[in-house]
Design a protein around this nucleic acid. Structure first.
Length: 422
RNA sequence: GGAGAGAUGGCUGAGUGGACUAAAGCGGCCGCCUCGAAAGCGGCUGUACCCAAAAGGUACCGCAGGUUCGAAUCCUGCUCUCUCCGCCA
């Protein structure tokens, strides 16, 4: 979200940003409303000044015992005029805000301009994609066979796309969460435990609201939301705060469950664990000085990659083109793992630099050494989302005899080296 | 869930209808003094908006309304914090 002044002064630039991201903004209406707004403010402020002066005169006269009826009447008329003006103004400002809220963040100059997801650029690929000589079962079949994944149980308890993991399946999730948090906190990310339910202001601060309201689970009675990602509570940690520059940068990691309604996303592409209403994720969040934010993005991606390298899962890093990146980000890398059973690249992490876009919405500032305050840059990335990593482990680590080997780094967490049953 | 107390600038804290242009102190910045520093002395001090800029102006005392010519101050609703009671893993 941009301040109105910035929008006014950079209108051509922002128009371009909107068209790159394929988002329509009603610029004509904006310009009309903005003109009206300024004229109105000038009128109101002039009247307020007159009103003040009239009141001063009224008081003087009162002290001298002079009859004041005329002044009183004048002040009354000014006062009621100001009130109507203020009402109109707030109405216009609401309309302007509604338009500004639809302006997406500006893509960085290093982001490829594209028309479709095909214009994304593969930056690097890691690991070896082996051809296996036996028939690998898709994760949902091997999971069911071994009794570690029970989709039907979840559907009974709640609804479809709420999985149940049992026995070693459940244990593997716990192992992955602990493993990831251990790595990140060793690498300088402060571990935080945060609420999985947040208020409207927090959802607005990170940019999920207003346009994604239908994708979220809502607690109506309290106007709270179940978080779709830990990005929301962790970034809002510093909402409306001013951080001393000496305390920057700040790195956080957090495990939370994530909840997404995924309205209208059902289909055969989503069989098994690919798309869920509830899933687990370890998230990385950074608050940094603006001048460092693109270097910080690179190291954030590397931090997420470490997890996959240690798990020995082949992956590739993809730079999203302007057509595929999210509303709030300036630059975004996706990390995709190779799942050998279903033979697909699966997105397991999305690492973004939001520059000051979220910081402005959430009013996250820092006090510079020269005493001035400015908005920080915020970044976040998954490090990593669990279900699709599970898909890769279930499939890539599958053996010919129908068991799942445990990746070496997880053996200390699991206490076993192979899953041969729930 | 019930009862009570509270929310004022970076911080502490005064202010119960008009001189509030928000006192005072702390902190911070600049200057004087000093070889340098401390102390002391003097000055400065927030955010946003309007105006091409400057000068100037306007708004902001938890949030939203209301009363009034005039509200930090009075009224109503809400949010949050604290204390006590109830309930609870």
């Amino acid at each position: 979200m941009f301040p109105i002044k910035f929008v006014r002064e950079n209108i051509e630039y922002l128009k371009k940003a909107g068209s790159l991201k394929k988002i329509n903004v009603d610029w004509e209406k904006f310009e009309i409303l903005e003109k009206q707004r300024r004229a109105l403010i000038q009128g109101i402020e002039k009247d307020r000044q007159k009103h003040k002066e009239t009141n001063d005169e009224f008081l003087e006269n009162k002290k001298k015992g002079i009859n004041n009826q005329k002044l009183l009447d004048y002040a009354k008329s000014l006062s009621s005029g100001i009130k109507t003006g203020e009402k109109t103004l707030s109405d216009i400002e609401k309309q302007i805000d509604a338009i500004i809220e639809t302006i997406p963040n500006i893509p960085h100059s290093s982001v490829p301009v594209g028309e479709t997801t095909n214009d994304n650029v593969i930056i690097r690929t890691w690991g070896e994609i082996k051809e296996k000589e036996f028939n690998i079962l898709p994760h949902y079949e091997i999971g069911k066979k071994l009794g570690v994944l029970e989709m039907e149980k979840g559907a009974k308890i709640t609804g479809s796309f709420f999985p149940v993991f049992a026995g070693n399946g459940a244990k593997l999730i716990r192992a992955l969460i602990n493993f990831m948090l251990d790595i990140h906190s060793k690498n300088g990310f402060k571990e935080v435990w945060v609420p999985a339910i947040v208020n409207r202001k927090s959802m607005f601060g990170t940019g999920q609201l207003p346009h994604l309201e239908d994708d979220m689970y809502k607690i109506k009675d309290d106007d709270y939301f179940l978080i779709p990602t830990a990005e929301v509570p962790v970034t809002n940690f510093y909402r409306e705060d001013i951080i001393p520059e000496d305390n920057l940068p700040q790195y956080f990691c957090a495990y939370t469950p994530c909840f997404r309604r995924e309205a209208g996303a059902y289909g055969k592409e989503t069989r098994g664990l690919i798309r869920l209403h509830q899933f687990d994720k370890v998230e990385l969040v950074k608050f940094v000085q603006p001048e460092n934010s693109y270097d910080e993005l690179e190291s954030l991606v590397k931090e997420a990659e470490i997890i996959l390298q240690l798990l020995n899962i082949p992956y590739r890093v993809v730079l999203l083109s302007t057509a595929d990146m999210s509303f709030s980000s300036s630059k975004c890398y996706d990390i995709e793992v190779w799942a050998q059973g279903i033979k697909k690249w699966l997105e397991v992490s999305s690492c973004s630099n939001f520059e000051a876009f979220q910081a402005r919405r959430a009013e996250i500032r820092y006090k510079k050494k020269d005493g001035k305050t400015d908005f920080v840059h915020t970044l976040n990335g998954s490090g990593i989302a669990l279900p699709r990593v599970l898909v890769a482990i279930y499939e890539n680590y599958q053996t010919e005899k129908g068991t799942i080997k445990i990746p070496d780094v997880l053996i200390p967490y699991m206490g076993i080296d192979e899953i041969n049953g729930g």
